[in-house]
């Protein structure tokens, strides 16, 4: 009896050791891959920050290690911030992006709620259709859109971007929100209906607070799509007063074959600040499991 027990114990021990070894190897491999990815993604921003801290002379000297700053300076930042063109680009970008996020999220949340919860005829097909529109590449649309924008008299006005970007952001944001709203238990709607809520009250007082992680995810997408877009401002805007950051930095700081690398990189660092802040701020709220406790978990 005791020898049987001892053998069983040894087998269990061996299995545990084997599992432990497998887990250790999996963890090592995961860390290695993650480290590679972190390096891969962080090298460009690191190089951008390093270059932004160099003087034009140091950049053009091309001596020493290019990854290290010999004589750090904030001159590029100071000159750029004082530059009225850069200020205009920045303000234009902020206006366009804020409006695009507000418009896109308003449409997406309302569309997703009606598609998932109001159960009207054809809602399933419409939901699929919304996603399919996202699959059309933006680069295919800019010529027909150019004609539309032209007819509306909005060529070389950043208001055209306020009109156009939601057409890119809304389908995907709606898709994200459809997924989130679908995950909210149907009993919550029914409880709200019985409690006396109408559809709008249900949306505002139940769905939006409960689906906040989804709304934040969609907001981040809409923000990124608008803030970082390059093609449409390049095609539709050409004067400095209407320009946004992405195209403005390039067009203003590259004259002929003269590249003001220090200022370009400083501009990129400054342009990256709002997205980084927004990501950092919203991530605190972007927590999974906000529906915990609503139903049997």
């Amino acid at each position: 009896m005791s020898s049987t027990t001892a053998t069983a114990g040894a087998v269990a021990q061996a299995r545990r050791t084997s599992l432990h070894r497998q887990r250790a190897w999996t963890l090592k491999a995961s860390y290695a891959v993650l480290t590679l990815m972190v390096v891969f993604f962080l090298v460009p921003p690191f190089y951008m920050v390093m270059t932004s801290l160099k003087s034009s002379a140091e950049i053009s000297a091309q001596q020493g290690n290019p990854w290290i700053v010999q004589h750090p300076t904030l001159a590029n930042f100071a000159e750029l911030i004082a530059n009225s063109n850069f200020q205009t680009f920045f303000v234009n970008s902020v206006i366009v992006t804020v409006l695009v996020v507000v418009i896109s999220m308003s449409i997406s949340v309302l569309a997703a709620f009606s598609l998932t919860r109001m159960g009207f005829w054809g809602s399933q097909t419409l939901a699929t259709g919304v996603f399919l529109t996202y699959l059309i590449p933006a680069s295919l649309l800019f010529i027909p859109l150019f004609q539309i924008i032209g007819k509306l008299g909005l060529i070389n006005s950043f208001w055209c971007l306020v009109l156009l970007y939601p057409t890119l952001a809304v389908p995907f944001c709606t898709w994200i929100m459809i997924g989130y709203f679908s995950s909210i238990p149907r009993e919550l709607d029914e409880a709200a209906l019985i409690d006396g809520a109408g559809y709008m009250q249900m949306l505002l007082r139940i769905f939006i607070p409960v689906a906040m992680p989804g709304i934040i995810a969609a907001t981040i997408f809409a923000f990124t799509a608008s803030w970082g877009a390059f093609l449409y401002p390049l095609a539709y805007l050409y004067t400095t007063d209407q320009m946004v950051l992405t195209v403005g930095i390039v067009s203003d700081l590259i004259r002929g074959d003269v590249f003001q690398w220090g200022k370009i990189m400083a501009g990129c660092v400054l342009a990256a600040v709002p997205p980084v802040l927004i990501y950092a701020f919203l991530m605190d709220y972007y927590i999974a499991g906000l529906t915990a406790g609503a139903t049997k978990g």
Binding site: E187, A192, V210, L290
Partner: peptide, 14 residues
């Protein structure tokens, strides 16, 4: 003028 109790409780989580 009815009130209902659901199997899954259906409490508002927020």
């Amino acid at each position: 003028d009815i009130a209902m109790v659901f199997q899954n409780y259906a409490l508002y989580p927020h």
